[in-house]
């Protein structure tokens, strides 16, 4: 989501991200609020100490921002059909906006390991959010153990789902350290080169 927003911003769009993650208590967009602000991206998330809580808070300003057609608004809803439930409250305003709803698929995650599981997850998300998934983002990875072969294998699965459900693949995501090795494969989809912004406490010591 951060990478997509930065890409949109680089295309001279005004960008807002809504952190609507009511499922995960850590590794949420709001933790990068200041950094993103410095980059010119506004983050809408619970204010002050409430941002540190595990409460299903939905900021009141979101509705108004959805109706503001001068900006690109990204909404990050947490993980699965439970996280997608928070989107349902915006159904009345979203339904006429020409929204894009993308499901991010990593076939190396539990519950999205094969096409049947992915389709079930997609339908569950649609049911709980009342919105239609109209695109896929292929995100095959195993964290630090990701290599190009693994991406290719996982991406094949997403392609299969794309064909079965007749849904376009908006992007294939590839971590920047692997981008140079991509040429070995003929990926026809758009590539989103991503940088990991959510780091672990032991990742770096300058």
């Amino acid at each position: 989501m951060i990478n997509q927003s930065i890409k949109a911003m680089q295309l001279k769009e005004k960008v807002i991200i809504v952190d609507l993650d009511i499922v995960n208590p850590y590794f949420r967009l709001r933790e990068k609020r200041e950094k993103l602000k410095e980059m010119g991206i506004e983050v809408i998330a619970p204010p002050g100490k409430l941002a540190l809580a595990d409460l299903p808070i939905i900021s009141p300003e979101i509705k108004g921002r959805i109706q503001d057609s001068n900006r690109i608004l990204f909404i990050d809803a947490g993980g699965d059909e439970v996280g997608a439930k928070s989107l349902a409250s915006f159904y009345p305003v979203l339904k006429n906006t020409g929204y894009q709803m993308n499901m991010v698929i990593n076939p190396y995650r539990p519950f999205t390991k094969n096409s049947a599981e992915i389709e079930k997850m997609l339908r569950d998300i649609e049911q709980s959010s009342r919105l239609e998934v109209n695109g896929l983002i292929s995100n095959p990875n195993l964290g630090d153990q990701t290599d190009i072969e693994l991406i290719a294998k996982g991406h094949d699965m997403v392609r299969k789902v794309s064909k079965q459900l007749n849904l376009p693949i908006r992007y294939l995501t590839v971590e920047q350290s692997l981008y140079q090795k991509l040429s070995a494969y003929c990926f026809t989809e758009n590539i989103l080169v991503i940088k990991r912004y959510m780091r672990l406490p032991w990742d770096e010591l300058n």
């Binding site: 995960n24 208590p25 850590y26 590794f27 190396y108 964290g143 153990q145 672990l200």
Partner: peptide, 10 residues
Amino acid sequence: DGLLGQMMEP
């Protein structure tokens, strides 16, 4: 601890 519970690894 919470970090081990929430982080993702292969």
